[in-house]
């Protein structure tokens, strides 16, 4: 029997991965580039919340709107200044992918420099910090819950519902789906594909920023935290099919649960695996998905799978 605390921890971690995978999938849908810089937008979100708390005394939860805007703006800038010009010149996936690695290095280096400056200015630790001590507690069904699990769950639910309504009920959302499916046709209908792509990149960064605010409540964070989250985000996104937004959310939830519950089980006897190997679970899942279902869970013919199970 799994302890409730482990399940609660899995929920929090899965929520963050779902937010990240959603953003990564959004950018992939536009330019078909796996964006290696996506993880650093989480780290940027972490530092927005940290800076506002240390410099202005604002509680990290109240920094969510600022992180949303700042990280969205960074992502949009990377699209407008790097990816769009390359794409317009006919750059292929390899060029765009290498460009995203370059952007990743620049962003991560920038965060390291910023953390150093902040450290000398505040005379405090800017690496390996946590917001856990700032979190609120909520009593529910005789148990004490940390507020981050409630906040991240509500955020993910709100994002999922808003995204569904936006994409299916609004004209701009429908235009977004159309521009993603067939940009030339969308253009020939008078849809500004450039604007649609720019909005997608902004949203992707903004969601990563929000995940970044929650992250230090769950684990110690530093400028490397985005890089650490990147492979897990790719796993979640690919598990979700890479081209499905709802699949990305599902992929994020499954990857998060697999990692937290997996390491809990494996760290117990008889395996007694060190928890330091925890990220290996995502790596193993990543390889398994690529081998067994490269199109992700949304590409599987579930009726066939169920028929095979019954046999």
């Amino acid at each position: 029997m799994l302890p409730v605390e482990v399940i609660i921890d899995a929920i929090t971690f899965s929520n963050l991965l779902a937010l990240l995978a959603l953003g990564l999938t959004l950018t992939y849908l536009t330019l078909k580039v796996p964006n290696f810089a996506h993880g650093d937008l989480v780290a940027a979100g972490v530092y927005v919340a940290f800076s506002l708390h240390k410099l202005c005394g604002i509680h990290p939860y109240l920094a969510i709107p600022v992180a949303f805007l700042v990280c969205g703006a960074i992502s949009l800038a990377s699209y407008l200044l790097v990816y769009r010009p390359l794409w317009r010149r006919g750059a292929g996936i390899v060029t765009l992918m290498i460009a995203s690695i370059a952007v990743e290095i620049v962003l991560r280096s920038g965060l390291h420099i910023y953390a150093d400056v902040l450290s000398s200015h505040l005379k405090t630790f800017t690496r390996g910090f946590s917001f856990a001590w700032l979190d609120w507690s909520v009593e529910m069904y005789g148990r004490t819950l940390t507020f981050v699990v409630i906040a991240s769950t509500c955020t993910l639910m709100a994002v999922t519902i808003s995204l569904y309504l936006f994409l299916s009920k609004t004209r701009f959302g429908t235009a977004m789906r159309a521009a993603i499916e067939n940009p030339s046709l969308a253009s020939s209908l008078g849809i500004n594909v450039d604007l649609v792509y720019a909005v997608s990149w902004f949203l992707a960064g903004a969601l990563a920023g929000v995940a970044g605010v929650f992250l230090p409540f769950r684990m110690p964070s530093d400028p490397e935290v985005g890089w650490e989250m990147l492979l897990r985000t790719f796993t979640a996104s690919i598990l979700g099919g890479l081209e499905s937004l709802m699949g990305a959310i599902l992929g994020g939830l499954l990857t998060g649960f697999a990692e937290v519950l997996g390491i809990y089980v494996l760290s117990k006897p008889p395996v007694s695996l060190s928890t330091a190997y925890r990220p290996a679970i995502s790596c193993a899942l990543f390889i398994m998905v690529l081998l067994v279902a490269p199109g992700g869970i949304t590409s599987l013919d579930w009726r066939r799978v169920l028929r095979w199970r019954r046999k």
Binding site: R177, E181, N182, A186, S188, L189
Partner: peptide, 23 residues
Amino acid sequence: KPHERARMGLAYLPQTDNVFSRL
């Protein structure tokens, strides 16, 4: 730009993929 041509009154139906299949 293509989207502005469409607004000027030009309609173009490509040979393939002239509709959005998933919608």
